[in-house]
Amino acid sequence: MDITVVFQIAAVGILVAVLNQVLKGAGRDDQATMTTLAGLIVVLFWIISHISDLFGTVQNLFQL
């Protein structure tokens, strides 16, 4: 697995947290929630194949 994915996820986490604070400060709580959700979905798209690989490896390891 490429280590840059981890850094990308960390950066997205920080930026989404900043966006969340800015939107909440402006009284736009709904948009803040939607932004957090969008960040989560983007990150899930990135790591979904890695999670699939992980489950595959676990299956092979324990011969399930």
């Binding site: 950066a11 930026l15 966006l19 402006a26």
Partner: peptide, 21 residues
């Protein structure tokens, strides 16, 4: 007062977010 600050911050942060994505 609140909107100007918010839009400016959103502009910068969303640019960084798009670049990283």
């Amino acid at each position: 007062k609140t909107d100007t600050k918010m839009y400016r911050s959103l502009g910068v942060v969303s640019g960084l977010l798009i670049t990283i994505a």
